[in-house]
């Protein structure tokens, strides 16, 4: 097969994948602007015209939706920042300690990252109630940070372990202390990896349902919890309004991923595994 024909086949296959994976989202986007199919006619027809009113209906169906959007943003941003910060220090410590088992420890963090929140979120809600952090932003942020930190440790460890130690040694000879080495030598070398990790953690936090669901009771509400409320309390939404809410909830993460697209491939599990 010639190279050109091979490339054409690739593009064709990729286009087929794109249709399969994006058709549901395209359907949702069309519904959010009022373009709906009518399956009762033969063949099915489309109803219209396009309108933006379903986006304002979100605020009628769920008066606090826009506030929930703000809560989700703040919680995810704080949790991702906190998790990346504490993980960065620990990953540096792991990568640079002489401690022979450190690879095993790092793999242990991956197992911890795989542990579903359901495994411990029930007793966690009891612990938070006792320390009066239930239904507070701090409680949600700290809990989400703890869920995602092990994954951040794994990724950042892999990136730091690949760095040559010569920069740090030079800085130490110049009299730099530990925090200066981490902040002024390592961090600038790994800014893209840190940014990519923070973006992935933001997406995970933004989409997290179980943790905020169990740890809040109305005072603090994120978008996924609001969505689950709608359906579990049988206040079923109209599809165009639900579609509009879906598109709005997808927007911030899609924009974020678009903005950081150039560095996202630095989020690699490969380095930690030695691949």
């Amino acid at each position: 097969m010639t190279a050109r024909r091979r490339d054409a086949t690739r593009v064709l296959l990729l286009a087929a994948m794109l249709v399969v994976f994006l058709a549901p989202l395209a359907w949702t986007a069309l519904a959010s602007i009022g373009l709906l199919p009518d399956n009762s006619t033969r063949p099915p027809s489309w109803t219209g015209p396009a309108t933006l009113e379903h986006f304002s209906e979100i605020g009628i169906a769920e008066p606090t939706f826009w506030q929930e959007l703000a809560t989700s943003t703040i919680a995810a941003a704080c949790a991702a920042t906190l998790a990346v910060a504490v993980s960065f220090f620990a990953a540096y410590g792991l990568a640079r300690s002489s401690f022979r088992a450190n690879r095993g420890v790092t793999q242990g963090f991956l197992v911890l990252a795989s542990l579903p929140a359901m495994a411990y979120v029930i007793p966690l809600s009891d612990v938070l109630r006792r320390v009066h952090l239930l239904d507070t932003l701090a409680g949600v942020v700290l809990s989400e940070a703890a869920v995602t930190a092990p994954l951040a440790v794994f990724v950042l460890y892999g990136a730091i372990a690949q760095l040559s130690v010569q920069w740090e040694e030079a800085a130490v000879l110049d009299g730099a202390g530990l925090l200066q080495v981490v902040g002024r030598v390592i961090l600038p070398l790994l800014t893209p990896t840190v940014a990519a990790t923070a973006v992935v953690l933001f997406v995970l936090d933004w989409n997290m349902l179980l943790v905020p669901l169990v740890l809040t009771s109305g005072e603090i509400k994120t978008i996924p919890v609001a969505m689950s409320d709608f359906f579990t309390f049988e206040r079923e939404l109209d599809w165009p309004t639900a579609a509009a809410a879906l598109i709005v909830s997808l927007g911030p993460v899609a924009v974020l991923v678009g903005l950081f697209h150039g560095v996202l491939d630095r989020f690699s599990l490969g380095a930690g595994t030695g691949a």
Binding site: F21, L22, P24, L25, V203, W206, N207, M208, L209, I223, P224, M227, S228, L246, S249, L250, V253, A254, V257
Partner: peptide
């Protein structure tokens, strides 16, 4: 990557 950005609940 877009489908992964949709939350499981959404």
């Amino acid at each position: 990557l877009l489908p992964w950005l949709v939350s499981p609940i959404a």
